[in-house]
Amino acid sequence: MKTMLRLSPILLIFGLIAALWRGLYSNPKEIPSPLLNKLTPSFELPNLFNPQENLNNQLFKDKVTILNVWASWCAACVEEQMFIRTIAPSTSAQWIGFNYKDDRQNAMAWLNRYGNPYSAIAADTQGVVALDWGIYGTPETFVIDRKDRIRYKHIGPITFADWQKDFVPLLAKLNGEVD
């Protein structure tokens, strides 16, 4: 009996081990966005190709939108761009680019080289709007519904597996939603 009593702390140890085991398979860097299911933060940013023209939340009106955050200095974005380029034409949503803390010339050269799947690109040179959106790195991707609400946020480059698992069902659902 005494021995059994002495063995009891092992249960505690097993509990700790189980928690650590689960911890291994969850990504500590993945923080759910507090903006999920909220209206997009309002913004006013110049169009990358035409700095005189300002882009704002009107962009998202009545359309399902994928907002992709990228920069020409971001290595992972190149990899992602290769993938986006192949799927963008057949996507049932508009692709908007969000150029983050970048130089205009570099950004345009980058698009020339790796392709431009976006219907419009907002340039956030100072990274000020990015703060409102909770963007802290590139690449990041937001999915926005017709009513201007953020429905999903993806951190890191989108891979084919991510696309199949997270994006395709969501886009189908959003396109099916009636006003």
């Binding site: 002495r6 702390p9 092992i10 140890i13 650590l20 291994l24 398979y25």
Partner: peptide, 28 residues
């Protein structure tokens, strides 16, 4: 990558548990 973590976790659980059992059986 997780494979490292899995190995370390197995190793340390084996050490934790075996030393606890040894302690429970022999400490008296």
């Amino acid at each position: 990558d997780p494979s490292r973590g899995v190995f370390l976790l197995l190793f340390l659980s084996a050490l934790w548990v075996s030393s606890m059992i040894l302690f429970a059986l022999r400490a008296h």
